[in-house]
């Protein structure tokens, strides 16, 4: 179960509301699918930003992904050799390009985070590769894309997967025993703003993406990485 935390300046406390359906598989938003091969996706975490299109240098006039805030996209197939990934706002004005060398990671994510009106809009290219996952284990990491959440921590089944992660940060993958695990996310030592149980499959890797603006709305989603 994914959730949205609502921060309303008229309330004394943040309200945790869990309403969204299970979204373990990255889905929707993309015209391409890597089908188990190489690929790139966009993780759009900026609440005040328009959708982004992803283009690849081998076909720069054909967007391969359309990414909305907080909603996962599939992976778009990318060439094996060197290429350039470009994420462009559908409103124009914001473009992020990344030169990807030959021998690059099998799967990558462009994280778009921050806020045009607060800290500025930023992007970073992340490798979605946990390395060899031990038997009967899953790999899990935390990404902090939420404006004003300065130090995020998360655990899965009681195992810490990240501590004090700043805005724009992605933790290293942590291996956990597969199964139904409670995933908890919090800022500093504050009460958790996210707590839910997810079925993590053996051999699979996952990202806990926290996105939005703490003063308005934060979404937390558990995404399968490939």
């Amino acid at each position: 179960m994914n959730s949205c935390s609502i921060a309303n300046k008229h309330l004394l406390a943040t309200i945790l509301i869990a309403t969204l359906g299970l979204q373990l598989a990255a889905c929707g938003g993309g015209s391409g699918s890597s089908g188990g091969g190489q690929g790139a996706r966009i993780l759009h975490a900026s609440l005040d930003s328009a959708p982004f299109n992803l283009t690849i240098s081998d076909r720069p006039d054909q967007p391969v992904l359309f990414a909305r805030f907080g909603l996962p996209t599939s992976y778009a197939a990318t060439p094996k050799g060197e290429h350039i990934l470009t994420a462009t706002s559908t409103l124009g004005g914001s473009t992020f390009s990344f030169a990807v060398p030959a021998g690059h990671p099998t799967r990558q994510s462009i994280l778009i985070y921050g806020s045009r009106g607060i800290s500025g809009l930023k992007a970073t290219l992340l490798a979605d590769e946990p390395g060899g996952i031990p038997p009967n284990s899953s790999a899990l990491r935390l990404i902090n894309g939420a404006e004003d959440l300065k130090a995020l921590s998360a655990s899965a089944g009681g195992t810490n997967i990240a501590q004090n992660l700043p805005l724009g940060g992605a933790s290293a993958y942590t291996f956990v025993v597969s199964g139904a695990l409670e995933i908890v996310a919090q800022e500093y030592q504050n009460a958790p703003f996210y707590r839910d149980t997810h079925e993590l499959l053996p051999g699979k890797s996952y990202t806990v993406l926290v996105a939005g603006e703490s003063r308005l709305m934060v979404t937390t989603r558990v995404l399968e990485d490939g």
Binding site: T19, G21, L47, D48, A50, R68, L71
Partner: peptide, 18 residues
């Protein structure tokens, strides 16, 4: 001057809430 970002926030909030 903040209106465009606020309208965009509104769209994103509604979509993110399904």
């Amino acid at each position: 001057g903040n209106a465009e970002r606020d309208y965009q926030r509104a769209i994103n909030i509604i979509l993110a809430l399904g």
